[in-house]
Computed example of a mutant assay.
Amino acid sequence: MTVELGIIEGFYGPLWRWPERKQLVQALEPHGYRFYLYAPKADAYLRRRWDEPHPQETATQLADFGRFCRKHGVRFGVGLSPFEVFNDFNDGAKKALAKKLAFLDEIGVQELAILFDDMRSDTPDLAARQADIVHWVQERSGAAQLSICPSYYSDDPVLDRVFGERPSDYLATLGGLLDPAVRVFWTGEEVCAREVTPGHLRRVGKALGRKPLLWDNYPVNDGDRMSRHLHLRGFTGRPANNAAWLAGHAINPALQPTLTAIPAITLAESYRQGPDYQYGQAFRHAAREILGADLADQVQADLLTLQDAGLHRISEDKKQALLTIYRGYPHAGAGEICRWLCGDYQVTDEMVQTQ
């Protein structure tokens, strides 16, 4: 059994360049990745400044990227985060949201995700308000597929600590109110789930009244702590029989667009191979496909340093030695390792709080 795979570019931190996004689409399309949702937290015009129009240059590039995705058989989508609009969905907010939806239709968005993640609310009837907003959007959007990320998108109590205690029966209430055609994102038992099991997905699906759309926070490495590590290893803890309980499986990529393709390919392999899947072997095959044999072997040799030790535990001498090695490879993946070693991908707490 297979499941539809996709990318949801939903991380905090520096924005990718458009050619990098296209490269990732081309790398993953042969492995069954069928949708791409553009939703970086750093695009303020989709989040904190959602009610303002995108600059013309960005709008033009978004439309071009949409055409590129469609040309490669990948459904083009956008994740819109109308920041805390559920606290006061007034006439002004409705007018601004209608304009944004018209813009998204104009650039050819095929899938629209309304993202309510990482926002504060003390609204007791939060689920009802969010369902009403999604249905309001549904009536005005030309997107063929509509999804929502709930405010509480995981069992993880960290969400309650940071954004306020979740309302009682929030998930079941939201699922009961939403049109069955609307897909609902869920990250698992934790925000960055170490494992996702059929038993867990079955329980969540029962509460929602539909199969959840998995928002997988691997290999994403945003945040102050995670951005000090490269997430390269093959996927684990996602058994192939999860497919029966999922509406789709989207990965939130790492800050490094070329390197992201390595674990992404291993996820496709885990579904394809089922019980025969071996994450170490899958990593080696994917790394060679993306990086070429020599660079892949070098990355594998340094995997403990790059993924496990992290920047804060690499001495200056070791860092310089690694830079010397990777600067010798004329490859985008090696360039990303060098930029990471130089601290270019470091995500600060301020970024997370203000994006």
Rank of each mutant, 00 (worst) to 15 (best):
E4H: 11
L5K: 04
F11A: 04
Y12S: 04
Y12Q: 08
P14V: 12
W18P: 05
Q23I: 06
L28V: 04
P30H: 05
R34P: 08
Y38A: 06
P40A: 06
W50D: 08
W50K: 08
D51N: 12
E52Q: 15
P53W: 06
P53S: 11
P53V: 02
P55M: 13
E57Y: 01
L62M: 11
G66R: 04
F68M: 09
H72V: 06
G73S: 09
P82Y: 11
E84F: 10
V85L: 10
D88H: 14
A93K: 11
K94D: 00
K94I: 07
L97K: 01
K100R: 14
L104I: 08
L104Y: 05
E106G: 04
A113M: 12
A113P: 03
L115R: 02
D118R: 00
A127E: 01
Q130P: 06
Q138G: 11
E139G: 14
G142R: 07
A143E: 02
Q145P: 04
S147D: 07
S151P: 00
F163A: 09
R166P: 03
L171N: 04
A172V: 13
A172E: 12
G175Y: 03
G176V: 05
L177E: 09
A181K: 13
A181V: 09
V182G: 07
R183V: 01
V184K: 00
F185K: 03
T187H: 05
T187M: 06
T187Y: 00
A193Y: 00
A193I: 02
A207M: 15
G209N: 00
L214Q: 02
D224W: 15
M226V: 03
R233T: 00
F235M: 07
F235S: 05
P239N: 08
A240V: 06
N242Y: 05
P253M: 11
L267E: 05
E269T: 08
Y271M: 15
P275G: 13
D276K: 14
I290R: 09
I290D: 05
Q300A: 10
L303Q: 14
Q307D: 10
A309E: 13
G310A: 09
G310D: 01
R313V: 09
I314N: 03
K318Y: 13
I325F: 05
R327A: 02
Y329F: 14
G335W: 13
G335P: 07
E336L: 11
E336F: 14
C342P: 08
Q355E: 10
Q355R: 10
